[in-house]
Nucleic acid binder design. Structure first.
Lengths: 141, 141
DNA sequence: CTCGCTGTATTACCGAACTAATACACTAGG
DNA sequence: CCTAGTGTATTAGTTCGGTAATACAGCGAG
């Protein structure tokens, strides 16, 4: 059975269908979901989350496009047998994509690479705590 | 006089007012714009760029909120005398903000920090070229 | 004081993205 | 078959961010 639980925040700026995709991908990387595991039906999950089945369907469809899940007409989706490979490749691709804007910014600002790396290293280590010594002023957006 | 030239791309997904902000900030960091330098009038610049004066005004206003420029009623904006400090502080704040999602992702994926750092270092070094040795398959968005 | 410049508050418009409603197609079990 | 489950194509509705139009307010040289 799939006792997977999803948490979504409708008020988040990240659209629901993407929150879902992210969580499913994450569950695969952590091994909570394995190849051939069934995903919740669109209706069941949509009810649980309080959204429309199409929203769930959209997430599933996009994941299928990425080769992460497999579609079976009339039957629930399952985690693709190739998902593991997908994830491995994704880890790199995803991180690179995520890092790209930062790298561009750093270069644009002509920052010292060592300094930038040090900052990133620090953030990797203790991600939750606020910062080393810096007043963070912003009520940004 | 201010022979500063701005290049914007209306078809870019980044909104015009933000493109403007970025370029002004950048010009300050590179020294092309110094404290007390006058910025182009909203009308002049808007005409040159083919956009509405309000769009330019929006960029200026947001930069003022950040303490990057100073507003003078009835007169053009000028680069704030504190802009240099702003930039220094910004460099750190901006990079941190930009790096934050990547750090979270890396931790979420339980990636090896060293690996992540290596990737970032590589990206900092040669930002333009494609990649070190990795099949990049994606027609993403 | 007036003209020509500056900026912008307010309002309206537009388009794209996200979500929802509806109706239809497939599958398996009884 | 028939039913109760599955997914989804199509269409419509809503929201929100960005941009534009308009009209108004401050400054300074003449």
């Amino acid at each position: 059975m799939s006792g997977i639980v999803f948490y979504i925040d409708p008020s988040d700026e990240v659209p629901v269908y993407r929150q879902l995709m992210d969580q499913i991908r994450l569950h695969v990387t952590t091994g909570e979901l394995s190849p051939n595991d069934e995903l919740p039906s669109t209706r069941a999950l949509s009810t649980e989350l309080g959204v429309n089945p199409m929203t769930v369907s959209k997430a599933y469809s996009l994941l299928e496009r990425d080769g992460m899940v497999t579609r079976r007409p009339g039957r629930p989706h399952v985690i693709a047998s190739t998902s593991t490979a997908q994830v491995a490749q994704d880890r790199d691709t995803l991180l690179r994509a995520s890092l790209e804007p930062a790298a561009r910014l750093a270069r644009q600002l002509d920052m010292n690479p060592a300094e930038a790396l040090a900052l990133f290293e620090h953030m990797l280590a203790n991600g939750d705590d606020k910062s080393p010594r810096r007043h963070t002023q912003d009520t940004e957006r």
